[in-house]
Simulated assay, not measured.
Amino acid sequence: MPIRTREWQLAARPHGEPTPDDFRLVELERPDPADGQIVVRMLVMSVDPYMRGRMNAGKSYAARWEIGETMKGGAVGRVIASRSPDVPEGALVLADAAWRDVAVLDAAHVRVLPELPGIPPSYHLGVLGMPGLTAWVGLFRLAEFRAGDAVFVSGAAGAVGSLVGQFARLKGASAVVGSAGTPEKVRWLTEEVGFTRAFDYHDGPVADLLTAAAPDGIDVYFDNVGGEHLEAAIGAFKEFGRAALCGAISGYNATEPVPGPRNMFLMVSKKLSLRGFIVGDHADLRGEFIEQVPPLLTSGQLVVRETVREGLDDAVPAFLDLLRGGNTGKMVVRLAQE
């Protein structure tokens, strides 16, 4: 018999900041799985800043969502029916099929996850998933981090930024400075996560705040924010500074082109390297990442925090809150209890 699902669809393309009217929750009937397919009950889904770009009509590195299409993103679920010998019933799987409670999927399009004692399924969407690998790739490959480097991270209290700072500290950074959007996030970074210094970017010009936090300058910048933060980092760099450009959330809802840094001439005199990247181009580092990060997690050397919202109905509010900085650590939406 057909499988009933609840799914979020894109109802309209936003102009500026998205609103709830840009989304629509529908009930659909999906056919029984064919040979090679599985039925997955979603346990937890991810909302991520990059999803804002998928709402636009223009070309982006991730395929855009079409009007009336059920949206996609990372989710972890349990297989409740299988017509594939490769993915048995009961398996825990990672799929690009978030924004719904149940999905009928081709078995070839999911990855079977290991059952890790004491590790919540949601960690496969955060510290052990795309955000964790993004932090690893950006810091070690793109920014070419070396022991003794002074590191600055924008959006430091988010899923990626909080891990960048910890990886740098654990690998011998001389200083780790972060920016965040609330006093509570600043305290979390310095008192629990292990950042050397942190500041609330609302407290003044970012360039002044960064100079006060890193008076000797920085060697590495991991950029999640862009705009004023990128300009401040360029000003604070020592010679041969390196930046990994991961995101620019400060401009995601802009309706006009965002001005670039006004001090780009310093790239020449300081001999800087600024490199943008998409984590999907660096899948060859996943083996190294999976080898080194889980032991840091199980030993307690990594601090992980999640902002958890409950139920599929709360997926859109969670996403909108994420774009406004309403998360500390990884934002996830729990869809079902095990």
Results as ranks from 00 to 15, higher is better:
S269A: 13
S82Q: 07
V193A: 15
K171Y: 02
R309P: 00
P295N: 05
G329I: 05
V44C: 08
D149F: 04
L297C: 10
G300F: 08
I249R: 01
P117F: 14
T298A: 08
A175F: 01
P31H: 12
V26N: 03
G165M: 05
E7I: 03
V110Q: 08
K271P: 00
P257M: 11
R54Q: 15
D96Y: 09
G311N: 05
G58P: 00
P88I: 06
M45V: 09
L320K: 03
V44E: 06
V333G: 06
S162L: 11
A232P: 00
G53D: 10
V303T: 14
G90F: 07
R83E: 10
I80M: 09
P215W: 11
P18R: 10
S60K: 01
R111N: 06
G129Y: 05
L94D: 07
P120K: 02
G260R: 02
H109G: 02
G204D: 10
G132P: 00
F289W: 12
I67C: 02
F152N: 01
G280L: 14
F240Y: 14
P49S: 10
D219S: 03
K59S: 14
Y221C: 11
T19D: 13
V137M: 03
M264Q: 13
I218Y: 03
K171R: 15
W188Q: 08
F319N: 03
A11S: 13
A62S: 13
L94E: 09
V153K: 06
D106I: 02
E306H: 08
Q37S: 04
A135D: 04
H282N: 13
G235V: 03
L139I: 06
R30F: 01
L113H: 11
A108D: 14
F167H: 10
A12H: 13
P121Q: 10
V47A: 05
L128I: 06
L266Y: 08
A11H: 13
L142N: 04
T134S: 12
D101V: 10
G165W: 04
K238A: 14
P120N: 02
V76H: 07
S122G: 12
L189M: 08
V44D: 05
A12C: 04
S84C: 10
D223E: 12
A98Y: 01
G326V: 09
R324S: 15
S174M: 08
G16R: 11
I38M: 13
A173D: 02
Q292D: 06
M264C: 10
E7A: 15
D86F: 05
P14H: 12
F319T: 02
T255I: 13
M42T: 09
R52C: 03
S122Q: 14
K59Q: 15
P117Y: 14
P85D: 14
A135N: 06
L230G: 11
D21E: 15
I3A: 08
L113A: 13
D219C: 03
A175V: 02
G158L: 08
P205D: 15
R13A: 09
S122M: 13
D96A: 10
L302M: 14
Y123T: 05
